[in-house]
């Protein structure tokens, strides 16, 4: 297994008292476990604030997990000291949503992409230039564009630069956090195709974070659905889209507008807002919005259980 995450938790202090004591906590990630194999993509979906980015950052130790373990290529990296962690970043990288703010506007595109090589002391200047040219070509940019600044590129091209930078050290695993959400539809396709081509060529693995279910369905092998810091359903892509079992997954799928006017349906939409991650509902976190909720759901927390081989669901009503 390339990546094995067990019972990952992360809380943030939400409010501190007079004496610096923490009064409330944001339970951003609350006991999340999953695995990703070589060459596979796990899609992580859920609505704003459910903890997707926090999961992605915590696995790369860009933020420190509150508890849980992260094993990468067999090694427990949860408590790896910073220096070793930095070395490990050669093999695990992240691509962010916003290609505008994640690139240094004062650096040339070529230098941005070559920077990780420089930081890790890889190769001499001439070799680095050659490697950078190769990466540029790989992500569909012209090597002669290496001297341009980020603002001289379009949104899709800027996202290619971020991907090129993430690829510079030849990683095995990339967290792609909403990599196409800021892009125009006609440009989205370019970046999605690129990510999939790279996987086919180099056997990369992805944690693909997105709130766009159609995109997730397109790129993922497996899908995990999060609600208020927890995974509520997790199985392979075909199953989750054909036969979602958790009422929240069903609600999410019913809410997604389908780009086909011939299948316009009269759908029942789930009511209410997502509750605050500070003061979460007791029992099943979804019960105030759940059309199927039973008295038991208000008091007892459903655990994530394997209801069918490789299909895990956290709902009392799913046998």
């Amino acid at each position: 297994m390339l990546l094995d995450v067990t019972d990952l938790r992360k809380t943030f202090p939400a409010r501190t008292g007079l004496f610096g004591n923490v009064i409330d906590r944001v339970h951003a990630v609350d006991g999340v476990s999953f695995r990703i194999a070589e060459g596979r993509t796990l899609g992580l979906v859920g609505e704003s604030g459910c903890g997707k980015s926090t999961v992605g950052r915590a696995i790369l130790r860009l933020i420190e997990p509150s508890s849980g373990t992260i094993r990468f290529q067999g090694d427990d990296i949860t408590n790896l000291p910073p220096k070793q962690m930095r070395a490990l970043r050669r093999r695990m990288q992240i691509v962010f949503q916003d290609p505008y703010s994640s690139l240094n506007p004062r650096k040339r595109a070529g230098d941005i992409v070559a920077e990780p090589l420089l930081v890790h002391g890889i190769a001499n200047a001439a070799e680095r230039r050659e490697m950078t040219e190769a990466i540029f070509a790989k992500v569909g940019l012209q090597p002669r564009q290496m001297g341009l600044f980020p603002h001289q590129f379009s949104g899709g091209q800027r996202q290619r630069i971020s991907i090129a930078r993430a690829l510079a050290l030849g990683p095995a695993f990339i967290v792609a956090d909403e990599p196409v959400s800021a892009l125009d539809v006609s440009v989205q396709a370019q970046v999605i195709n690129l990510l999939m081509d790279l996987q086919a060529q180099d056997g990369l693995s992805y944690l693909f974070i997105s709130h766009n279910l159609a995109v997730v369905e397109h790129v993922s092998h497996d899908v995990a659905v999060m609600y208020l810091g927890r995974i509520v359903e997790h199985t392979d892509k075909a199953t989750i889209f054909a036969k979602p079992l958790h009422p929240y997954t069903q609600a999410l799928m019913a809410a997604v507008p389908v780009a086909d006017p011939s299948v316009r349906r009269d759908k029942k939409h789930v009511m209410g807002d997502v509750p605050s991650p500070i003061d979460r509902p007791k029992g099943c976190h979804f019960h105030p919005r759940c059309p199927l909720a039973q008295p038991r759901c208000r008091t007892e927390e459903p655990v994530l259980r394997e209801v069918q081989p490789n299909h895990r669901v956290a709902c009392h009503l799913v046998a």
């Binding site: 609505e47 704003s48 609600a251 999410l252 809410a255 507008p257 759908k267 939409h269």
Partner: peptide, 9 residues
Amino acid sequence: DVTIQAQVL
């Protein structure tokens, strides 16, 4: 969010 989007639409 998509569930809220659906409600508003």
